[in-house]
Every structure is written in structure tokens, then in C-alpha cells.
Simulated scan of single mutants.
Amino acid sequence: VNNTGSFGSVQSMGIINYPQAAILQVESIVKRPVVMNNGMIAVRDMVNLCLSLDHRVLDGLVCGRFLQRVKEILEHTSKETTSIY
């Protein structure tokens, strides 16, 4: 995991160095307009995630499902349902 967002970056791509198989870039959280399910526009906090991977080591489908799961977890995190240690 590489946190380039701490420097204000909103879009970048990691370079994989041997012996790494993948690197996940987490960018800055910024407010963006989003179209909601009811067609209304709302301002929401958004973050870009970029997963660079070595296809010789990892399957892109598996990595895509990993990013989908990370997105699902982040979207359904709340103070009521998530305990903080």
C-alpha cells in the first residue's frame, strides 16, 4: 500500500519493483459531485484507488475482485457498524 494522498495527489500509478507482485495507491479524499440513485446530485467524499499488478504473478480478475471488495467495505463503513480499536 502506498499512500500518495498524504501529499495531495488525486491520481497516480505505482511502479512495481521486484519482488513485489502488486501495489495499491490510495489518493487524497476530495469532495466531488455525484449523481445519486434518485437522480439528484449530491456532494460526496471520493477517493481514487489504483492497483498496479504483475500479470505474470497475479490474475487481473482476482485483483479486480479484490478492488471491488475494498470498495464495498469502504462504502458500507459507518460509525454504527464499524468498531474502532
Results as ranks from 00 to 15, higher is better:
59 D>G: 08
1 V>M: 13
7 F>P: 05
26 V>R: 00
39 G>R: 06
69 R>D: 09
69 R>H: 09
26 V>H: 08
2 N>W: 07
3 N>Y: 04
41 I>Y: 02
18 Y>T: 13
76 H>S: 13
60 G>W: 07
39 G>Q: 04
16 I>L: 02
44 R>W: 00
1 V>T: 13
55 H>A: 02
4 T>Y: 06
64 G>F: 12
49 L>R: 01
20 Q>K: 10
57 V>A: 13
27 E>G: 02
28 S>V: 02
52 S>L: 02
2 N>P: 07
12 S>T: 01
10 V>C: 02
30 V>T: 15
17 N>E: 09
67 L>R: 10
55 H>R: 03
25 Q>N: 14
40 M>D: 15
39 G>S: 05
25 Q>Y: 11
66 F>H: 07
46 M>Q: 11
85 Y>C: 12
24 L>W: 04
74 L>D: 03
11 Q>R: 08
26 V>G: 04
78 S>H: 06
25 Q>I: 13
76 H>F: 12
24 L>T: 09
3 N>W: 05
56 R>M: 09
57 V>T: 09
66 F>W: 08
31 K>I: 11
83 S>C: 11
36 M>S: 09
36 M>H: 09
61 L>W: 12
24 L>H: 05
21 A>M: 10
52 S>D: 02
49 L>T: 00
44 R>F: 01
77 T>V: 15
19 P>T: 04
19 P>A: 01
5 G>T: 01
47 V>M: 12
42 A>H: 12
46 M>S: 03
40 M>W: 06
58 L>P: 03
42 A>K: 14
47 V>A: 04
49 L>G: 02
76 H>D: 13
41 I>M: 07
75 E>W: 07
65 R>K: 15
41 I>H: 05
21 A>R: 07
2 N>L: 14
77 T>S: 14
36 M>F: 07
9 S>T: 05
15 I>C: 11
40 M>Y: 07
84 I>S: 14
57 V>N: 07
47 V>D: 08
13 M>N: 03
50 C>Q: 10
62 V>W: 11
47 V>R: 01
84 I>L: 13
79 K>L: 13
65 R>S: 12
61 L>F: 10
13 M>L: 06
5 G>W: 01
80 E>W: 00
62 V>Y: 13
29 I>F: 11
73 I>N: 08
55 H>C: 01
81 T>M: 10
22 A>V: 00
